[in-house]
Design a protein around this nucleic acid. Structure first.
Lengths: 300, 300
DNA sequence: AGCGGTTACGAAAGACGTAAGGATG
DNA sequence: CATCCTTACGTCTTTCGTAACCGCT
């Protein structure tokens, strides 16, 4: 067992290997030769006297010990980085890597602009901008910050709410022979649903407190909100869509807010990040930036 | 600036240098040559781009930055050690160094036995047993755990109470011409005081809630409780002493509890240790051990 | 065969200790 | 002048990349 390989480097390499999903990829990221990275991992395992990563030929997975170690190591490295930022007189310089995961629609439509502004303001930060729906395995993904619509269940994360999205029933003017005045009339329309959020039952509520649940015929179900929007615009049916997503179409008159008094349950937009007292400065700045930028889009 | 000197080693050396009070001493502790330790410190300063330690010829002091860094570094190192303990399968083996500071009297009379028992039970732990009264600069002393009688003001420390000590007025039978029945009668006696705890005013209280403050003539003031006890035993005067300290003398009749109904304000026995989530296992065990051992001596 | 991980080896870089140089009380 | 820190230098350890080897899809 060698002696003087920097212990923190070993940990960083370990984290990178898990994040990259392979030793070779991590080596490229780190500017090392592949054998070096491999050796460092082996060395770490030797020091901890236990296997951390199972290397199969084309895949790589964590042992239970490795998974647990990973989260603890991240905390330690965060703390080291906090030390750096605090004492290395960089005068509040913001730099480093930042990996963000966000839902496709949200990222594409709202966040990207904000992120580009951030990028321009802090050119030393390398942003990795991953748009992807559904749950992610935060711990292994190696992302710094995850935007999500709806609740986040992972208790190892800290979750801040950015606001709530108003969701409403829309359709093209054409589809609506007569503009309905009560929710029940909507049940006769063809309907399109977004799978993670709606099934075949559509709850609606009125400011008065009144609420109904529609069970319309679902003509199309998709997990892609753009496909859904396209279908709605083509007149294929009515759908529940978040207000921020179709605001333009409402203004141009392409889509109509069918029942302005009725709303589907609103969803919370959350931003989640790793627990631990020491967030890197660039992450704090990023979250502040985006929060300020987009909070006007959502209801408080 | 060199590259591959282990960052954690650098931090450890820095801490050791501050604790030892000199580079040479730290080098001896660490099994390094003196230039090596010196270089490591220089290297750390270079990496943080600021001076941490001021080296005068025969002394050594921290810069403000260095002092602040020191506490943060200790936290980081504690976290590293926690990682070691958690993943290095030592099967709950308790080992390492432990430096304890306690008041002379308390350490000599109560704690030493307990510490020796601990030592025997965990032979792999190297105990450094420093008995010293007064306030210590915990941050620079490099001790793991500090016993203190009375309040601890350092807000960077976590303080647990071990109980309170009952303090009472004692004297030799000889000194007491007649056994007094009210506090005021004590003011005519010669009196001996323990400087950090009493001045020339002695407050006493009665279970009923009644209280008086005596202003006797102080014949002797000392900061050493053994000297004080010796003086009292020699009949030089009366004094306020903690019950645990003179229990034997009370039983043998050498000393008399002058006013069994009256007591001086009791003091709290505290154990203080560094803040931070990750206490080394050996420290947790030690505190548990001592707490269990001596709690019976004090009132809850 | 192609991609990924491990082992072997020569080259280069870095850290250590010994020894000499300065500063301070 | 004794003590402590720093600088200079030669030696030795250690790590790196290249290249060869093995396993799997």
């Amino acid at each position: 067992m060698s002696k003087s390989l920097d212990r923190l480097t070993l940990l960083e390499t370990f984290v990178r290997i898990v994040e990259a999903g392979s030793v070779s990829a991590a080596a490229r990221d780190l500017g090392l030769s592949q054998p070096s990275a491999s050796r460092q991992l082996a060395e770490l395992e030797a020091r901890f006297k236990s296997q951390l990563v199972v290397r199969t030929t084309h895949d790589l997975s964590l042992t239970p010990t490795g998974a647990e170690l990973l989260t603890d190591v991240r905390q330690l490295l965060d703390q080291w980085e906090a030390l750096q930022e605090k004492y290395l007189n960089t005068e509040g310089e913001v730099r480093g890597q930042l990996k963000i995961v966000a839902p496709v629609a949200l990222g594409q439509q709202c966040l990207t602009e904000s992120a580009l502004g951030f990028q321009q303001h802090y050119p030393q930060v390398a942003l990795s901008w991953q748009l992807q729906d559904g749950n992610i395995r935060f711990a292994e993904a190696g992302c710094d910050c995850w935007f999500k619509i709806g609740p986040v269940t992972d208790s190892t994360l800290v979750v801040d709410s950015l606001g709530t999205v108003e969701r409403l029933a829309v359709a093209t003017p054409k589809l609506l022979a007569a503009v309905p005045t009560s929710p029940r009339e909507l049940e006769t329309l063809p309907w399109i649903s977004l799978v993670p959020f709606e099934g075949d039952r559509i709850p609606l509520s009125h400011p008065s407190g009144q609420s109904v649940t529609l069970s319309p015929a679902i003509r199309l179900a998709t997990n892609n909100i753009f496909a859904l929007k396209q279908a709605v615009l083509a007149g294929a049916g009515a759908a529940i869509l978040p207000k921020w997503f179709i605001q333009n179409a409402l203004q141009t008159g392409e889509l109509i807010d069918i029942l302005p008094e009725w709303r589907a349950p609103s969803l919370t937009v959350n931003v989640a990040y790793r627990r631990g007292r020491h967030q890197p400065l660039r992450l704090r700045r990023f979250i502040e930036w985006v929060t300020a930028d987009i909070s006007s889009l959502f209801d408080e």
